[in-house]
Design a protein around this nucleic acid. Structure first.
Lengths: 390, 390
DNA sequence: CCACTTACTTTTGGGGCGGAATAATTGTGG
DNA sequence: CCACAATTATTCCGCCCCAAAAGTAAGTGG
């Protein structure tokens, strides 16, 4: 039961691959791992031995459920001790810091939020440090911190530009490391969510996987070959120029008929406000649309068609195995899912593979969890170097 | 100077990687190959020695041009003897068979076309056999045959369905192999072109690469991580349901405002015919549009906008390093390239990476060359197995 | 002619993998 | 109750392939 706080760095590539496979795909027997990684049974014994000795993996007592009617020597599933390390994830918004503590498997153990009183970088770092200190009392085994911020983030460490915080070139990772002594990763929030879903969520084990988020803005992430594809505009707001319907509405953000104008929560609220003079919440608009009130129904219908067109375009051109729809705005699917699907089908070849669309409601703690996953990645893969190398 | 007609099969993976690198990226010195494949200099000596001995590679006398002002021992570039093997590629259309002979590097050495008098599978195979026999007289070192067909092709051997030939489940590879004694690969024509461009053309060495063809129909191919992504509808006509402009024209093929209706040569000619009652060739329409004649100009303008929107969508969602535009219809770019680019920019984030769009005029011999590349791949990679494995 | 640079070759040592033989552990069938 | 089959894991050995280091080759510049 060694408790190395450092990292998994002294692992050989083979060992790391085994650890990663077990971490991401749950308890697995040695022979199962051998099949997945196309290694021989002998290699597996060799690779797992040091991992078991170091306490990173354990043999689990084989929960009977997968017993079946198999004969032969029973397999001995291996598992990661997910609770052996804890990670902190923060999501910074304009007026709040949302925090979570997760296990190695990115399961949320605790939530802890606090209002953000100031935007001064040092004061924000102070607050993150204090929150971490308080969390550390309950979870002494903290191994790293991930921070998600909307905006442009460089080298997983520096906030190059963030409009809502009025930050430019803030070395946030450094500031928080100084205060906590823990390794810190900073990343754009959408990128973090995509990484999290790739490792532990809907994109687990997939080769081609796309994430579309709708909420205050549009987010998009593409994962190919298990790696997220970096994109120049990813930190500056997707969808402002994705013209879905040239005759669509004009809103303060985004070009006429763009995904932003048609789909984001602020734009939808703006459209209702402009048309009716009344200010409604997004939920209210959805509810009234479901009840058939004409104006909300028209706006929501248009949004659903736009969403369907986007999903179809992604399906047609990226040919992903799965598309994940996430964010605060996915309630749209509950109210207008049928219209979305109709539009998808209208934009797809009838013989094309069916679109595998998964919807996931996300609150701010999911964004924070995404940030925590980055800290996990850094620990598991060795210090961040080369993670987002092209 | 051994002349093994078989294949490169007895090569180790390392040797094959070296051979492939030299084949695809031209003459390279050992140290350059070492850098590209991240191998040590020592490994390269080891790997290249058997390749040189077997005559697959040769040391070229270093054509002075790349001399530069370098000091040190001059490098000794290695090259494939591209002429050591020849390959035949056929493209079958409704009334013609286009044939080419290429080198190992897929350079076209000879063209040889013949009208296709019948669609009977055995007679077609007879004709392909005869054409191959005639070509074999001039090029005795034929090592394989590739055949490109529009339609659904299974296992690189069987034409599952081809509308214009009225074929169903024709085991074309088998039929031609019987007549020629050479290994035969059959593939959908668009797929073949994409493979060819990936190995020897615009997509060489790229990680993410998309091909869009416009001509009698729309073609699309995606290459990720150097491998073409298979797609369920690829053999049944892309673009019939890619709705680019919901208010666009309605044509016999494709849904209203679809890429097919807006962009394919038959649809453009149909639009002009429907509007003016006159039948014009595609070239004529392009010419008159350039001269400002209103009706052709309108149709071409609309087509250009559609093309721009498609390219932008691909850029936005796939984030490719390059998009290749090919086919018989790319003359559109010459006449209306500006409109296309305007539309692309209107659909892209201003801070996004610039779109790298390459245009390539293709005639039927390019399609045949694409088919020949498949034969090259089979020889180089070992008999086709696993090439299109998911 | 000698230092210096770069390219290639040879040799050596070691890591890691596959494969065969063995042990462990259970179910099956007489 | 005991072989026997089936399956998983372990041990051991040999091979392959690679990196590192040291040596050789071939040129440039003072």
């Amino acid at each position: 039961m060694t408790t190395r706080t450092a990292s998994w760095l002294p692992l050989s590539p083979g060992e790391r691959a085994v650890a990663l496979e077990v971490l991401v795909h749950g308890p697995l027997s040695r022979s199962e791992i051998a099949r997945r990684l196309s290694l021989s049974a002998g290699s597996l014994t060799r690779l797992t031995k040091p991992l078991l000795e170091s306490g990173l993996l354990v043999e689990v007592p084989e929960g009977a459920p997968l017993a079946e009617v198999r004969q032969g020597r029973p397999s001995q599933p291996l598992d990661i001790v997910a609770e052996s390390r804890s990670f902190v994830g923060f999501k910074i918004t304009e007026d709040m810091v949302y925090g979570v503590v997760t296990t190695l498997r990115s399961e949320i153990v605790t939530r802890y939020d606090r209002p953000l009183a100031t935007h001064d970088p040092h004061r924000v770092a102070d607050q993150l440090g204090e929150m971490t200190a308080e969390l550390a009392r309950a979870y002494p085994g903290l191994a790293g911190i991930g921070i998600g911020v909307g905006g442009l983030v460089q080298d997983r460490a520096v906030v190059g530009e963030s409009a809502f915080l009025s930050w430019r070139d803030v070395r946030l990772a450094e500031l928080v490391e100084e205060r906590t002594g823990l390794p810190v990763v900073v990343e754009n929030d959408v990128s973090a969510l995509v990484e999290a879903e790739t490792w532990f969520g809907a994109g687990r084990g997939l080769d081609r996987f796309a994430v579309l988020t709708i909420g205050a803005g549009i987010g998009y992430g593409l994962v190919l070959g298990g790696k997220r594809v970096p994109c120049a505009e990813e930190d500056r707001g997707f969808g402002r120029h994705w013209i879905v319907n040239p005759n669509g509405p004009l809103t303060p953000d985004g070009a006429r008929g763009s995904a932003v104008s048609l789909l984001t929560i602020p734009s939808i609220r703006y459209q209702i406000r402009a048309a009716t003079g009344r200010d409604m919440t997004y939920e209210e608009i959805l509810a009234r649309s479901a009840e058939g009130e004409p104006m909300p129904a028209r706006v929501i219908d248009e949004a659903a068609r736009a969403l369907g067109a986007l999903v179809a375009q992604i399906s047609n051109f990226v040919i992903p195995q799965k598309i994940l729809l996430a964010g605060e705005g996915v309630g749209l699917m509950d109210v207008a899912g049928e219209v979305v699907w109709e539009t998808i089908h209208a934009h797809r070849h009838p013989l094309a593979d069916p679109v595998h669309l998964e919807t996931k409601v996300s609150d701010f703690h999911d964004w924070a969890r995404g940030a925590a996953v980055l800290a996990i990645q850094v620990l598991v893969l060795g210090n961040g170097a080369g993670v987002n190398a092209e």
